[in-house]
């Protein structure tokens, strides 16, 4: 209805949506290269690389678990920087808020995968699904901290209010991370339980290359996810602003038609 009543605007809208910006093209390229990299990693990791002398086939988790953890911390780092930049008055921009939200969302996904793959790896090598290691505990807490952050972001409200609230919450949550890490490591050092050491394995040759490839591939996938989520957030923001105007225009047009019908 609104398309018919505002042909010029409709063309402008679809035109903007259809013409891919340079950033979107770069993001798509990242996604494509990343996808090829992931396929290669899977092939190299499952078929080409040899099983480890100590861990056997379990070592193949090496090609997914560390890169997932790296992606998670990278994503949280980006989210933190974007939040801090948003709070800084000179760089305040709602686009930074969208980057922070998009990156945190990707980070939560990667943290979830990190925890699951780490647990799957821990069971056969350490004999337990979970251990209260500082890194593990901090990662698990990060997961719930950022789930809370995402819940906060999902609340309805004015974009500026939401952005500021989320940015402050992100900073406060981020400060907690070193405190948690420090306190848990100290706790562990005081209460020496059965210490679990990961098996020392030599990583070289095709294994090292595959590991490196997995880092690059999954980092590219992260960049692509971030870009796509960021674009989607922009569209959602536009829908919030323009959706109401469109709906109003539609209702007005309907009212106008029915009145015209009565008159004739």
């Amino acid at each position: 209805m609104s398309v018919a009543s505002h042909p010029v605007e409709a063309v402008a809208l679809t035109g903007r949506a259809l013409a891919p910006a340079r950033g979107a093209r770069i993001a798509s390229a990242c996604g494509l290269v990343g996808l090829v990299g992931v396929v290669l990693t899977v092939w190299l990791g499952l078929w080409v690389t040899p099983p480890d002398a100590y861990m056997g086939n379990l070592v193949r988790l090496l090609y997914i678990h560390p890169s997932m953890a790296w992606d998670a911390f990278l994503a949280y780092g980006v989210s933190f920087l974007a939040s801090a930049a948003y709070l800084w008055p000179r760089t305040r921009d709602l686009r930074l808020d969208r980057v922070a939200g998009a990156s945190a969302e990707a980070g939560v996904v990667f943290t979830g995968i990190t925890l699951v793959t780490g647990s799957l790896w821990g069971r056969p090598t350490w004999g337990v699904w979970w251990t209260w290691d500082p890194l593990l505990t901090t990662t698990a807490l990060l997961f719930v901290l950022y789930l809370g952050y995402l819940a906060l972001r999902r609340l309805p409200g004015e974009p500026e209010v939401r952005a500021r609230r989320s940015a402050i919450a992100a900073l406060v949550a981020f400060i907690d991370v070193p405190i948690v890490y420090f306190s848990v490591s100290w706790w562990r050092s005081l209460h020496q339980g059965p210490t679990i050491q990961p098996g020392r394995s030599e990583v070289h040759g095709s294994m090292a290359w595959t590991l490196l490839l997995s880092f690059v591939a999954f980092s590219l996938v992260y960049v692509w996810m971030l870009a796509e989520r960021y674009r989607l957030a922009g569209l959602q923001a536009r829908d919030e602003v323009e959706g109401l105007a469109d709906a109003l225009a539609e209702r007005r047009a309907e009212a106008g038609m029915s009145r015209a019908g009565e008159a004739s």
């Binding site: 719930v144 809370g148 819940a151 906060l152 609340l155 409200g157 406060v172 907690d176 405190i179």
Partner: peptide, 22 residues
């Protein structure tokens, strides 16, 4: 932070407990 929101009863524990873990 949670006060003005409609989901404050459920949002507050989710935000509060992980941070005070230390």
């Amino acid at each position: 932070l949670a006060a003005g929101t409609r989901v404050r009863e459920t949002l507050l524990p989710l935000l509060f407990f992980p941070v005070v873990a230390p």
